[in-house]
Write a protein that binds this DNA or RNA. Structure first.
Lengths: 247, 247
DNA sequence: CGAGTGGTTGACCACAATCAAGACCCGTGG
DNA sequence: CCACGGGTCTTGATTGTGGTCAACCACTCG
Protein backbone atom coordinates (compact mmCIF):
# COMPACT_ATOMS: atom_id res chain seq x y z
CA UNK A 1 0.00 0.00 0.00
CA UNK A 2 1.35 3.39 -0.92
CA UNK A 3 -0.02 6.66 0.34
CA UNK A 4 0.74 10.09 -1.05
CA UNK A 5 -0.01 13.27 0.83
CA UNK A 6 3.01 15.27 -0.25
CA UNK A 7 2.04 18.77 -1.21
CA UNK A 8 -1.36 20.27 -0.53
CA UNK A 9 -2.31 19.98 -4.16
CA UNK A 10 -1.45 16.32 -4.55
CA UNK A 11 -4.57 14.29 -5.23
CA UNK A 12 -5.00 12.06 -2.20
CA UNK A 13 -5.15 8.59 -3.71
CA UNK A 14 -4.19 5.24 -2.33
CA UNK A 15 -3.37 2.43 -4.66
CA UNK A 16 -2.79 -1.12 -3.50
CA UNK A 17 -1.97 -3.46 -6.31
CA UNK A 18 -3.37 -6.40 -4.39
CA UNK A 19 -6.84 -5.00 -3.77
CA UNK A 20 -9.98 -4.17 -5.63
CA UNK A 21 -8.73 -0.59 -6.01
CA UNK A 22 -6.24 -1.84 -8.51
CA UNK A 23 -8.92 -2.55 -11.06
CA UNK A 24 -8.58 1.16 -11.66
CA UNK A 25 -4.84 0.97 -12.13
CA UNK A 26 -3.35 0.88 -15.61
CA UNK A 27 -1.47 -2.26 -14.80
CA UNK A 28 -4.63 -3.94 -13.75
CA UNK A 29 -6.57 -2.62 -16.67
CA UNK A 30 -4.02 -4.51 -18.67
CA UNK A 31 -4.05 -7.34 -16.18
CA UNK A 32 -7.77 -7.79 -15.69
CA UNK A 33 -8.24 -10.06 -18.69
CA UNK A 34 -5.37 -12.19 -17.42
CA UNK A 35 -7.00 -12.95 -14.11
CA UNK A 36 -10.29 -13.36 -15.90
CA UNK A 37 -8.80 -16.21 -17.87
CA UNK A 38 -7.11 -17.69 -14.81
CA UNK A 39 -3.65 -17.15 -16.19
CA UNK A 40 -0.73 -17.28 -13.82
CA UNK A 41 -0.99 -14.10 -11.72
CA UNK A 42 2.77 -13.78 -11.78
CA UNK A 43 2.49 -12.85 -15.43
CA UNK A 44 1.37 -9.49 -14.16
CA UNK A 45 4.67 -9.02 -12.47
CA UNK A 46 6.49 -9.92 -15.63
CA UNK A 47 4.75 -7.04 -17.35
CA UNK A 48 5.57 -4.39 -14.80
CA UNK A 49 8.18 -5.24 -12.27
CA UNK A 50 9.87 -1.86 -12.07
CA UNK A 51 8.40 1.03 -10.17
CA UNK A 52 9.32 4.61 -10.80
CA UNK A 53 8.60 7.79 -8.92
CA UNK A 54 8.86 11.34 -10.25
CA UNK A 55 8.36 14.72 -8.64
CA UNK A 56 5.96 17.52 -9.53
CA UNK A 57 7.17 19.27 -12.66
CA UNK A 58 9.67 16.59 -13.59
CA UNK A 59 9.92 15.25 -17.15
CA UNK A 60 9.00 11.59 -17.59
CA UNK A 61 10.12 11.49 -21.20
CA UNK A 62 10.77 13.93 -24.00
CA UNK A 63 9.47 14.02 -27.54
CA UNK A 64 11.64 12.10 -29.97
CA UNK A 65 13.36 9.98 -27.35
CA UNK A 66 13.57 6.29 -28.19
CA UNK A 67 10.74 4.36 -26.59
CA UNK A 68 12.16 2.18 -23.86
CA UNK A 69 9.10 1.60 -21.75
CA UNK A 70 5.43 2.36 -21.42
CA UNK A 71 4.09 3.58 -18.11
CA UNK A 72 0.97 3.04 -16.08
CA UNK A 73 0.11 5.57 -13.39
CA UNK A 74 -0.35 4.16 -9.90
CA UNK A 75 -0.96 7.52 -8.26
CA UNK A 76 -0.55 11.16 -9.19
CA UNK A 77 -1.00 12.63 -12.66
CA UNK A 78 0.86 13.33 -15.87
CA UNK A 79 0.32 15.73 -18.75
CA UNK A 80 1.38 14.89 -22.29
CA UNK A 81 1.88 17.64 -24.84
CA UNK A 82 3.15 18.64 -28.26
CA UNK A 83 4.71 21.97 -29.24
CA UNK A 84 5.06 24.19 -32.29
CA UNK A 85 8.49 25.30 -33.42
CA UNK A 86 8.13 28.66 -31.72
CA UNK A 87 7.15 27.19 -28.39
CA UNK A 88 3.35 27.25 -28.22
CA UNK A 89 2.19 23.95 -26.82
CA UNK A 90 -0.95 21.88 -26.82
CA UNK A 91 -1.65 19.42 -24.03
CA UNK A 92 -3.07 16.30 -25.63
CA UNK A 93 -4.10 14.60 -22.40
CA UNK A 94 -4.19 14.63 -18.62
CA UNK A 95 -3.53 11.15 -17.26
CA UNK A 96 -4.46 10.01 -13.79
CA UNK A 97 -4.17 6.87 -11.69
CA UNK A 98 -5.12 3.93 -13.84
CA UNK A 99 -4.12 5.40 -17.18
CA UNK A 100 -1.45 3.93 -19.43
CA UNK A 101 0.96 6.34 -21.16
CA UNK A 102 2.87 5.93 -24.36
CA UNK A 103 0.79 3.15 -25.91
CA UNK A 104 0.36 5.05 -29.15
CA UNK A 105 4.11 5.13 -29.69
CA UNK A 106 4.42 1.36 -29.52
CA UNK A 107 4.85 0.83 -33.25
CA UNK A 108 7.05 3.83 -34.06
CA UNK A 109 9.52 3.28 -31.25
CA UNK A 110 9.79 6.98 -30.44
CA UNK A 111 7.85 9.10 -27.96
CA UNK A 112 5.57 11.41 -29.95
CA UNK A 113 4.88 13.76 -27.03
CA UNK A 114 6.51 15.15 -23.92
CA UNK A 115 5.25 13.77 -20.60
CA UNK A 116 5.58 15.77 -17.40
CA UNK A 117 4.34 15.16 -13.86
CA UNK A 118 1.62 17.49 -12.56
CA UNK A 119 2.30 16.32 -9.01
CA UNK A 120 4.45 13.71 -7.31
CA UNK A 121 3.63 10.56 -9.18
CA UNK A 122 4.14 6.80 -8.87
CA UNK A 123 4.40 4.76 -12.04
CA UNK A 124 4.80 1.21 -13.19
CA UNK A 125 7.37 0.86 -15.91
CA UNK A 126 6.44 -1.62 -18.65
CA UNK A 127 9.31 -2.66 -20.93
CA UNK A 128 7.93 -2.75 -24.46
CA UNK A 129 9.58 -6.01 -25.44
CA UNK A 130 8.11 -7.77 -22.40
CA UNK A 131 4.69 -6.43 -23.20
CA UNK A 132 4.82 -7.40 -26.85
CA UNK A 133 6.12 -10.83 -26.05
CA UNK A 134 3.37 -11.39 -23.52
CA UNK A 135 0.77 -10.03 -25.94
CA UNK A 136 1.81 -12.67 -28.44
CA UNK A 137 0.98 -15.31 -25.86
CA UNK A 138 -2.22 -13.89 -24.48
CA UNK A 139 -5.19 -13.10 -26.74
CA UNK A 140 -7.02 -11.31 -23.94
CA UNK A 141 -4.14 -8.96 -23.34
CA UNK A 142 -4.05 -8.22 -27.06
CA UNK A 143 -7.68 -7.31 -27.20
CA UNK A 144 -7.28 -5.13 -24.13
CA UNK A 145 -4.46 -3.25 -25.84
CA UNK A 146 -6.54 -2.81 -28.96
CA UNK A 147 -9.41 -1.58 -26.83
CA UNK A 148 -7.21 1.02 -25.15
CA UNK A 149 -5.90 2.26 -28.50
CA UNK A 150 -9.42 2.56 -29.91
CA UNK A 151 -10.60 4.48 -26.86
CA UNK A 152 -7.72 6.89 -27.23
CA UNK A 153 -8.77 7.57 -30.80
CA UNK A 154 -12.37 8.22 -29.73
CA UNK A 155 -11.16 10.55 -26.99
CA UNK A 156 -9.00 12.53 -29.41
CA UNK A 157 -11.84 12.73 -31.92
CA UNK A 158 -14.02 14.37 -29.30
CA UNK A 159 -11.17 16.67 -28.40
CA UNK A 160 -10.91 17.87 -32.01
CA UNK A 161 -14.62 18.70 -31.97
CA UNK A 162 -14.07 20.70 -28.79
CA UNK A 163 -11.01 22.52 -30.16
CA UNK A 164 -12.44 23.12 -33.60
CA UNK A 165 -15.98 24.18 -32.86
CA UNK A 166 -16.76 24.89 -29.24
CA UNK A 167 -16.86 28.21 -27.39
CA UNK A 168 -14.77 28.82 -24.27
CA UNK A 169 -17.83 28.22 -22.10
CA UNK A 170 -18.60 24.92 -23.80
CA UNK A 171 -14.99 23.83 -23.48
CA UNK A 172 -14.85 24.48 -19.76
CA UNK A 173 -18.16 22.76 -19.13
CA UNK A 174 -17.00 19.70 -21.10
CA UNK A 175 -13.71 19.71 -19.25
CA UNK A 176 -15.25 19.83 -15.78
CA UNK A 177 -17.76 17.08 -16.50
CA UNK A 178 -15.07 14.98 -18.13
CA UNK A 179 -12.85 15.22 -15.07
CA UNK A 180 -15.80 14.47 -12.80
CA UNK A 181 -16.67 11.39 -14.80
CA UNK A 182 -13.14 10.04 -14.75
CA UNK A 183 -12.81 10.50 -11.01
CA UNK A 184 -16.16 8.82 -10.59
CA UNK A 185 -15.05 5.81 -12.64
CA UNK A 186 -12.12 5.43 -10.26
CA UNK A 187 -14.30 5.48 -7.19
CA UNK A 188 -13.78 9.09 -6.10
CA UNK A 189 -16.40 11.77 -5.71
CA UNK A 190 -17.78 12.98 -9.01
CA UNK A 191 -18.99 16.31 -7.65
CA UNK A 192 -16.02 17.45 -5.61
CA UNK A 193 -12.37 17.12 -6.54
CA UNK A 194 -8.93 18.71 -6.52
CA UNK A 195 -7.53 19.66 -9.88
CA UNK A 196 -3.91 18.66 -10.22
CA UNK A 197 -3.28 21.03 -13.09
CA UNK A 198 -2.92 24.82 -13.15
CA UNK A 199 -5.26 27.24 -14.94
CA UNK A 200 -2.52 27.62 -17.51
CA UNK A 201 -2.52 23.86 -18.13
CA UNK A 202 -6.28 23.81 -18.49
CA UNK A 203 -6.05 26.56 -21.07
CA UNK A 204 -3.24 24.79 -22.89
CA UNK A 205 -5.44 21.70 -23.06
CA UNK A 206 -8.64 23.47 -24.11
CA UNK A 207 -7.02 25.77 -26.64
CA UNK A 208 -7.89 28.97 -24.76
CA UNK A 209 -5.94 31.47 -22.65
CA UNK A 210 -5.37 31.10 -18.93
CA UNK A 211 -7.34 34.30 -18.33
CA UNK A 212 -10.32 32.99 -20.25
CA UNK A 213 -10.28 29.88 -18.06
CA UNK A 214 -10.41 32.06 -14.94
CA UNK A 215 -13.12 34.35 -16.20
CA UNK A 216 -15.30 31.46 -17.31
CA UNK A 217 -14.89 29.59 -14.03
CA UNK A 218 -15.79 32.74 -12.11
CA UNK A 219 -18.87 33.16 -14.27
CA UNK A 220 -19.86 29.53 -13.65
CA UNK A 221 -19.52 30.24 -9.95
CA UNK A 222 -21.58 33.44 -10.17
CA UNK A 223 -24.29 31.45 -11.92
CA UNK A 224 -24.27 28.81 -9.21
CA UNK A 225 -23.00 26.00 -11.45
CA UNK A 226 -19.83 25.29 -9.50
CA UNK A 227 -18.00 26.23 -6.35
CA UNK A 228 -14.57 27.43 -7.36
CA UNK A 229 -12.02 27.44 -4.51
CA UNK A 230 -8.88 27.62 -6.60
CA UNK A 231 -8.04 24.00 -7.32
CA UNK A 232 -10.85 22.60 -5.25
CA UNK A 233 -13.89 22.37 -7.49
CA UNK A 234 -17.38 21.43 -6.42
CA UNK A 235 -19.96 20.79 -9.10
CA UNK A 236 -23.30 22.20 -7.98
CA UNK A 237 -25.40 21.83 -11.11
CA UNK A 238 -24.16 19.05 -13.37
CA UNK A 239 -27.39 19.09 -15.37
CA UNK A 240 -27.07 22.68 -16.50
CA UNK A 241 -23.35 22.20 -17.08
CA UNK A 242 -24.19 19.35 -19.36
CA UNK A 243 -26.55 21.42 -21.47
CA UNK A 244 -23.75 23.98 -21.77
CA UNK A 245 -21.38 21.42 -23.30
CA UNK A 246 -23.45 21.13 -26.47
CA UNK A 247 -22.44 17.54 -26.89
CA UNK B 1 -8.90 -2.58 -63.28
CA UNK B 2 -11.37 0.16 -62.50
CA UNK B 3 -11.19 3.68 -63.80
CA UNK B 4 -13.12 6.65 -62.49
CA UNK B 5 -13.48 9.85 -64.45
CA UNK B 6 -17.01 10.72 -63.41
CA UNK B 7 -17.34 14.40 -62.64
CA UNK B 8 -14.65 16.95 -63.32
CA UNK B 9 -13.72 17.08 -59.66
CA UNK B 10 -13.28 13.36 -59.17
CA UNK B 11 -9.67 12.56 -58.42
CA UNK B 12 -8.47 10.54 -61.40
CA UNK B 13 -7.16 7.37 -59.79
CA UNK B 14 -6.89 3.86 -61.07
CA UNK B 15 -6.73 1.01 -58.66
CA UNK B 16 -6.05 -2.55 -59.67
CA UNK B 17 -5.97 -4.95 -56.78
CA UNK B 18 -3.62 -7.26 -58.64
CA UNK B 19 -0.89 -4.76 -59.33
CA UNK B 20 1.77 -2.82 -57.53
CA UNK B 21 -0.65 0.11 -57.24
CA UNK B 22 -2.59 -1.87 -54.72
CA UNK B 23 0.15 -1.52 -52.15
CA UNK B 24 -1.45 1.84 -51.66
CA UNK B 25 -4.89 0.41 -51.16
CA UNK B 26 -6.28 -0.13 -47.70
CA UNK B 27 -6.93 -3.73 -48.41
CA UNK B 28 -3.38 -4.23 -49.45
CA UNK B 29 -2.05 -2.26 -46.54
CA UNK B 30 -3.81 -4.87 -44.49
CA UNK B 31 -2.81 -7.60 -46.88
CA UNK B 32 0.83 -6.75 -47.40
CA UNK B 33 2.05 -8.62 -44.33
CA UNK B 34 0.08 -11.63 -45.50
CA UNK B 35 1.87 -11.89 -48.78
CA UNK B 36 5.12 -11.09 -47.03
CA UNK B 37 4.71 -14.23 -44.96
CA UNK B 38 3.63 -16.30 -47.96
CA UNK B 39 0.20 -16.97 -46.56
CA UNK B 40 -2.48 -18.16 -48.93
CA UNK B 41 -3.29 -15.12 -51.10
CA UNK B 42 -6.92 -16.13 -51.06
CA UNK B 43 -7.02 -15.06 -47.43
CA UNK B 44 -7.12 -11.55 -48.80
CA UNK B 45 -10.37 -12.31 -50.50
CA UNK B 46 -11.75 -13.70 -47.31
CA UNK B 47 -11.14 -10.35 -45.67
CA UNK B 48 -12.78 -8.21 -48.27
CA UNK B 49 -14.92 -10.00 -50.78
CA UNK B 50 -17.67 -7.43 -51.08
CA UNK B 51 -17.26 -4.27 -53.06
CA UNK B 52 -19.39 -1.22 -52.54
CA UNK B 53 -19.81 1.95 -54.51
CA UNK B 54 -21.29 5.22 -53.28
CA UNK B 55 -22.02 8.51 -54.99
CA UNK B 56 -20.74 11.99 -54.19
CA UNK B 57 -22.52 13.31 -51.09
CA UNK B 58 -23.94 9.95 -50.08
CA UNK B 59 -23.72 8.71 -46.49
CA UNK B 60 -21.58 5.63 -45.95
CA UNK B 61 -22.62 5.25 -42.34
CA UNK B 62 -24.11 7.39 -39.60
CA UNK B 63 -22.93 8.04 -36.07
CA UNK B 64 -24.33 5.58 -33.56
CA UNK B 65 -25.16 2.89 -36.12
CA UNK B 66 -24.07 -0.62 -35.16
CA UNK B 67 -20.73 -1.48 -36.71
CA UNK B 68 -21.26 -4.08 -39.37
CA UNK B 69 -18.20 -3.62 -41.49
CA UNK B 70 -15.03 -1.65 -41.86
CA UNK B 71 -14.18 -0.13 -45.21
CA UNK B 72 -11.06 0.39 -47.24
CA UNK B 73 -11.12 2.98 -50.01
CA UNK B 74 -10.19 1.69 -53.47
CA UNK B 75 -10.77 5.03 -55.20
CA UNK B 76 -12.43 8.32 -54.37
CA UNK B 77 -12.56 9.95 -50.95
CA UNK B 78 -14.54 10.06 -47.74
CA UNK B 79 -14.89 12.57 -44.94
CA UNK B 80 -15.63 11.51 -41.37
CA UNK B 81 -17.06 14.00 -38.90
CA UNK B 82 -18.65 14.60 -35.51
CA UNK B 83 -21.28 17.18 -34.61
CA UNK B 84 -22.41 19.22 -31.65
CA UNK B 85 -26.02 19.08 -30.53
CA UNK B 86 -26.84 22.33 -32.33
CA UNK B 87 -25.38 21.17 -35.61
CA UNK B 88 -21.85 22.56 -35.78
CA UNK B 89 -19.61 19.84 -37.11
CA UNK B 90 -15.94 19.01 -37.07
CA UNK B 91 -14.39 16.88 -39.78
CA UNK B 92 -11.97 14.49 -38.10
CA UNK B 93 -10.39 13.18 -41.27
CA UNK B 94 -10.31 13.12 -45.06
CA UNK B 95 -9.69 9.62 -46.32
CA UNK B 96 -8.39 8.77 -49.78
CA UNK B 97 -7.55 5.67 -51.77
CA UNK B 98 -5.63 3.29 -49.55
CA UNK B 99 -7.10 4.42 -46.25
CA UNK B 100 -9.13 2.18 -43.96
CA UNK B 101 -12.23 3.63 -42.28
CA UNK B 102 -13.91 2.68 -39.04
CA UNK B 103 -10.99 0.85 -37.43
CA UNK B 104 -11.26 2.87 -34.23
CA UNK B 105 -14.80 1.66 -33.69
CA UNK B 106 -13.78 -1.98 -33.76
CA UNK B 107 -14.04 -2.51 -30.02
CA UNK B 108 -17.14 -0.45 -29.27
CA UNK B 109 -19.25 -1.91 -32.05
CA UNK B 110 -20.78 1.43 -32.98
CA UNK B 111 -19.70 4.01 -35.51
CA UNK B 112 -18.39 7.02 -33.60
CA UNK B 113 -18.53 9.38 -36.59
CA UNK B 114 -20.53 10.00 -39.73
CA UNK B 115 -18.85 9.06 -43.00
CA UNK B 116 -19.82 10.73 -46.27
CA UNK B 117 -18.43 10.49 -49.79
CA UNK B 118 -16.70 13.58 -51.18
CA UNK B 119 -16.90 12.14 -54.68
CA UNK B 120 -17.99 8.90 -56.29
CA UNK B 121 -16.14 6.29 -54.34
CA UNK B 122 -15.30 2.58 -54.56
CA UNK B 123 -14.85 0.68 -51.33
CA UNK B 124 -13.99 -2.75 -50.08
CA UNK B 125 -16.28 -3.91 -47.33
CA UNK B 126 -14.58 -5.82 -44.52
CA UNK B 127 -16.92 -7.72 -42.20
CA UNK B 128 -15.62 -7.20 -38.66
CA UNK B 129 -16.03 -10.81 -37.58
CA UNK B 130 -14.03 -12.05 -40.56
CA UNK B 131 -11.30 -9.57 -39.83
CA UNK B 132 -11.10 -10.40 -36.15
CA UNK B 133 -11.12 -14.11 -36.84
CA UNK B 134 -8.34 -13.76 -39.35
CA UNK B 135 -6.38 -11.49 -37.01
CA UNK B 136 -6.43 -14.27 -34.43
CA UNK B 137 -4.74 -16.54 -36.92
CA UNK B 138 -2.22 -14.12 -38.37
CA UNK B 139 0.28 -12.26 -36.17
CA UNK B 140 1.39 -10.03 -39.05
CA UNK B 141 -2.14 -8.87 -39.68
CA UNK B 142 -2.50 -8.08 -35.98
CA UNK B 143 0.61 -5.95 -35.89
CA UNK B 144 -0.53 -4.14 -39.02
CA UNK B 145 -3.85 -3.32 -37.34
CA UNK B 146 -2.05 -2.08 -34.25
CA UNK B 147 0.21 0.01 -36.43
CA UNK B 148 -2.76 1.62 -38.18
CA UNK B 149 -4.42 2.43 -34.85
CA UNK B 150 -1.24 3.98 -33.47
CA UNK B 151 -0.79 6.10 -36.58
CA UNK B 152 -4.33 7.36 -36.26
CA UNK B 153 -3.60 8.49 -32.71
CA UNK B 154 -0.46 10.31 -33.82
CA UNK B 155 -2.40 11.99 -36.62
CA UNK B 156 -5.12 13.16 -34.24
CA UNK B 157 -2.55 14.42 -31.75
CA UNK B 158 -1.06 16.64 -34.44
CA UNK B 159 -4.54 17.76 -35.38
CA UNK B 160 -5.23 18.90 -31.82
CA UNK B 161 -2.04 20.99 -31.90
CA UNK B 162 -3.24 22.56 -35.13
CA UNK B 163 -6.75 23.23 -33.81
CA UNK B 164 -5.65 24.40 -30.39
CA UNK B 165 -2.71 26.61 -31.18
CA UNK B 166 -2.21 27.45 -34.81
CA UNK B 167 -3.28 30.54 -36.74
CA UNK B 168 -5.44 30.29 -39.86
CA UNK B 169 -2.37 30.76 -42.04
CA UNK B 170 -0.47 27.99 -40.26
CA UNK B 171 -3.48 25.68 -40.52
CA UNK B 172 -3.82 26.13 -44.27
CA UNK B 173 -0.10 25.69 -44.85
CA UNK B 174 -0.11 22.48 -42.79
CA UNK B 175 -3.18 21.26 -44.63
CA UNK B 176 -1.76 21.81 -48.11
CA UNK B 177 1.55 20.16 -47.33
CA UNK B 178 -0.25 17.29 -45.61
CA UNK B 179 -2.38 16.65 -48.66
CA UNK B 180 0.65 16.91 -50.92
CA UNK B 181 2.54 14.39 -48.85
CA UNK B 182 -0.29 11.88 -48.85
CA UNK B 183 -0.75 12.09 -52.60
CA UNK B 184 2.99 11.70 -52.99
CA UNK B 185 2.99 8.54 -50.86
CA UNK B 186 0.42 7.09 -53.21
CA UNK B 187 2.45 7.81 -56.30
CA UNK B 188 0.69 10.98 -57.47
CA UNK B 189 2.20 14.39 -57.94
CA UNK B 190 3.05 16.11 -54.69
CA UNK B 191 3.01 19.62 -56.12
CA UNK B 192 -0.15 19.57 -58.19
CA UNK B 193 -3.45 18.00 -57.25
CA UNK B 194 -7.21 18.26 -57.29
CA UNK B 195 -8.88 18.77 -53.96
CA UNK B 196 -11.91 16.56 -53.57
CA UNK B 197 -13.37 18.65 -50.76
CA UNK B 198 -15.06 22.05 -50.81
CA UNK B 199 -13.73 25.18 -49.11
CA UNK B 200 -16.44 24.65 -46.53
CA UNK B 201 -15.12 21.15 -45.80
CA UNK B 202 -11.57 22.45 -45.47
CA UNK B 203 -12.76 25.01 -42.95
CA UNK B 204 -14.78 22.42 -41.08
CA UNK B 205 -11.64 20.31 -40.85
CA UNK B 206 -9.27 23.14 -39.86
CA UNK B 207 -11.61 24.78 -37.38
CA UNK B 208 -11.95 28.02 -39.37
CA UNK B 209 -14.66 29.59 -41.54
CA UNK B 210 -15.02 28.93 -45.24
CA UNK B 211 -14.34 32.61 -45.93
CA UNK B 212 -11.09 32.49 -44.00
CA UNK B 213 -9.99 29.52 -46.10
CA UNK B 214 -10.65 31.52 -49.27
CA UNK B 215 -8.92 34.66 -48.06
CA UNK B 216 -5.86 32.75 -46.89
CA UNK B 217 -5.56 30.77 -50.13
CA UNK B 218 -5.84 33.99 -52.13
CA UNK B 219 -3.10 35.53 -50.01
CA UNK B 220 -0.89 32.47 -50.54
CA UNK B 221 -1.44 32.91 -54.26
CA UNK B 222 -0.65 36.63 -54.14
CA UNK B 223 2.59 35.80 -52.35
CA UNK B 224 3.51 33.22 -54.98
CA UNK B 225 3.31 30.23 -52.65
CA UNK B 226 0.62 28.38 -54.56
CA UNK B 227 -1.41 28.51 -57.72
CA UNK B 228 -5.06 28.45 -56.73
CA UNK B 229 -7.41 27.46 -59.55
CA UNK B 230 -10.45 26.57 -57.48
CA UNK B 231 -9.94 22.91 -56.63
CA UNK B 232 -6.81 22.52 -58.68
CA UNK B 233 -3.90 23.47 -56.45
CA UNK B 234 -0.30 23.78 -57.51
CA UNK B 235 2.33 24.19 -54.83
CA UNK B 236 4.96 26.65 -56.00
CA UNK B 237 7.06 27.15 -52.90
CA UNK B 238 6.87 24.18 -50.55
CA UNK B 239 9.86 25.41 -48.57
CA UNK B 240 8.27 28.69 -47.52
CA UNK B 241 4.95 26.95 -46.92
CA UNK B 242 6.74 24.62 -44.57
CA UNK B 243 8.19 27.45 -42.52
CA UNK B 244 4.67 28.87 -42.28
CA UNK B 245 3.36 25.68 -40.68
CA UNK B 246 5.39 26.23 -37.51
CA UNK B 247 5.71 22.51 -37.02
C1' DC C 1 -29.01 29.71 -71.84
C1' DG C 2 -30.45 29.88 -67.14
C1' DA C 3 -30.34 27.92 -62.57
C1' DG C 4 -27.81 26.45 -58.91
C1' DT C 5 -23.77 25.38 -56.39
C1' DG C 6 -19.53 26.68 -54.81
C1' DG C 7 -16.02 30.26 -54.47
C1' DT C 8 -14.54 35.03 -53.61
C1' DT C 9 -14.47 39.53 -51.67
C1' DG C 10 -15.98 43.30 -48.63
C1' DA C 11 -17.79 45.50 -44.33
C1' DC C 12 -18.60 45.02 -39.83
C1' DC C 13 -18.54 42.82 -35.38
C1' DA C 14 -17.56 39.73 -31.41
C1' DC C 15 -15.16 36.56 -28.77
C1' DA C 16 -11.28 35.69 -26.81
C1' DA C 17 -6.09 37.03 -26.77
C1' DT C 18 -2.99 40.05 -24.96
C1' DC C 19 -1.09 43.30 -21.84
C1' DA C 20 -1.04 44.90 -17.28
C1' DA C 21 -1.79 45.15 -12.45
C1' DG C 22 -3.08 43.43 -8.28
C1' DA C 23 -4.70 39.60 -4.96
C1' DC C 24 -4.06 35.40 -2.85
C1' DC C 25 -1.70 31.49 -1.21
C1' DC C 26 2.21 28.89 0.01
C1' DG C 27 6.71 27.72 1.42
C1' DT C 28 10.78 29.60 3.41
C1' DG C 29 13.84 31.87 6.41
C1' DG C 30 14.82 35.37 9.76
C1' DC D 1 5.64 34.19 14.64
C1' DC D 2 5.85 37.29 11.00
C1' DA D 3 7.87 39.09 6.73
C1' DC D 4 9.16 38.14 2.34
C1' DG D 5 9.14 36.26 -2.35
C1' DG D 6 7.48 33.60 -6.03
C1' DG D 7 4.05 31.24 -8.24
C1' DT D 8 -0.68 31.06 -9.30
C1' DC D 9 -5.02 33.04 -9.81
C1' DT D 10 -8.08 36.87 -10.79
C1' DT D 11 -9.76 41.04 -12.81
C1' DG D 12 -9.64 45.04 -15.92
C1' DA D 13 -8.64 47.54 -20.37
C1' DT D 14 -7.57 47.22 -24.96
C1' DT D 15 -6.67 44.98 -29.26
C1' DG D 16 -6.90 41.80 -33.08
C1' DT D 17 -7.87 37.66 -35.51
C1' DG D 18 -11.13 35.52 -37.54
C1' DG D 19 -16.47 35.00 -37.59
C1' DT D 20 -20.68 36.59 -39.57
C1' DC D 21 -23.57 38.70 -42.87
C1' DA D 22 -24.12 40.02 -47.46
C1' DA D 23 -23.35 40.58 -52.22
C1' DC D 24 -21.28 39.16 -56.23
C1' DC D 25 -18.82 36.09 -59.36
C1' DA D 26 -17.59 31.75 -61.93
C1' DC D 27 -18.18 27.53 -63.26
C1' DT D 28 -21.00 23.41 -64.27
C1' DC D 29 -24.80 21.01 -65.63
C1' DG D 30 -29.34 20.31 -67.12
Amino acid sequence: MITLTHAKYDTPTEIDCNTVACRNCGICRLGTPLTATHADPRLLERIAKNRRQIKRGELLYGMGEPLKALYAIRSGSIKTYLSTMDGRSQITGFHIAGDPIGLADLTTGTYSTEARALENTHLCEIPVDHLQQLAEELPDLRSQLTHLLCNEILRLQKLTLLLGKKTAEERLASFLLGIAQRYHQRGFSSHEFNLSMSRNDIGTYLGIAEETVCRTLTRFQDEGLIDNQRRLIRILNAERLHTLTQS
